[in-house]
């Protein structure tokens, strides 16, 4: 048997779902094969438990381990890094818990927080930098201001308050089972300095962020907020811009283009 054939056969034995007695292997090899097979499942389930610790707490050992085992069969690891074993676990959970949207949304949040933790370092535009850039801006310059956001930033529409679940579990507090939001909201995940962060956006901020991420200007943002809030919209636009800069969300700003 060639090496590649042996490796294919060995891989199949180690990763096969369900119980197996390795009857097509020599008896002397069977106890060892069982060690590798048990280690494969245990290591990957442990990895998913560690990556999705709060989702695991939320749904409990039995449900989580069953979902993890299902995920390993549906999406067996292909990456060189064990950390990637959790990729798409939120999609697996969405299929397994179709009536409990908070489960997949909480898993999405945990996954994105981990991605943000190791996202590429990049310079951000801080308050001092923005003050220098915008000094002497004319009204036209303000209206034409465009922003680039940090590349590690992620945004998702959510139906359940998975952020509140996260916080309750992190603080070891009880959480009501009634976690559905009155209406869908946007959840933002990014890294501020070295620390991953998340927060739920107001509907106004979500509209603004969507607008500017898709090439809109600060002028477009002011107009959108005036339509929603009246004259206080301009003040809200300035406040929102200040929050984005203070929280390290803005990578670059440019006027007059």
């Amino acid at each position: 048997m060639t090496l590649v054939d042996l490796q294919r056969r060995f891989y199949a034995a180690v990763t096969s779902p369900g119980e197996t007695a390795f009857e097509d292997w020599e008896p002397a090899l069977r106890p060892g094969l069982a060690v590798y097979r048990n280690a494969y499942r245990a290591r990957l389930i442990e990895c998913l438990r560690s990556t999705f610790e709060k989702t695991w707490t939320w749904i409990g050992d039995e449900s989580f381990d069953a979902a993890a085992a299902h995920h390993l069969i549906a999406k067996p690891p292909r990456s060189w890094t064990l950390d990637d074993a959790g990729a798409g676990f939120d999609e697996t959970l969405a299929q397994l818990f179709p009536d409990d949207s908070e489960v997949a949304e909480l898993a999405w949040l945990e996954w994105q927080m981990q991605q943000a933790f190791t996202a590429a370092d990049e310079p951000v535009l801080d308050a001092t930098g923005f003050a220098a850039l915008s000094k002497g801006f004319t009204e036209e310059a303000w209206a034409s201001l465009r922003l680039s956001f940090v590349t590690g930033m992620r945004l998702r529409r959510i139906q359940a308050d998975c952020g509140a679940i996260w916080t309750a579990i992190a603080n070891d507090e009880n959480m009501s089972a009634d976690v559905l939001l009155d209406e869908k909201r946007s959840l933002l995940v990014w890294r501020q300095g070295l620390d991953p962060r998340f927060r739920m956006l107001s509907s106004e901020e979500a509209v603004c962020l969507d607008l500017l991420r898709n090439g809109g200007t600060f002028g477009d943002m002011c107009e959108a907020l005036i339509k929603r809030l009246g004259v206080s919209g301009i003040e809200e636009a300035g406040r929102t811009l200040g929050v984005w800069i203070a929280q390290g969300l803005v990578r670059h700003a440019e006027a007059g283009v």
Binding site: V14, Y40, P77, R78
Partner: peptide
């Protein structure tokens, strides 16, 4: 691993 799959063992 083999054929693009990884056991991480």
């Amino acid at each position: 691993g083999v054929d693009g799959h990884n056991t991480h063992d």
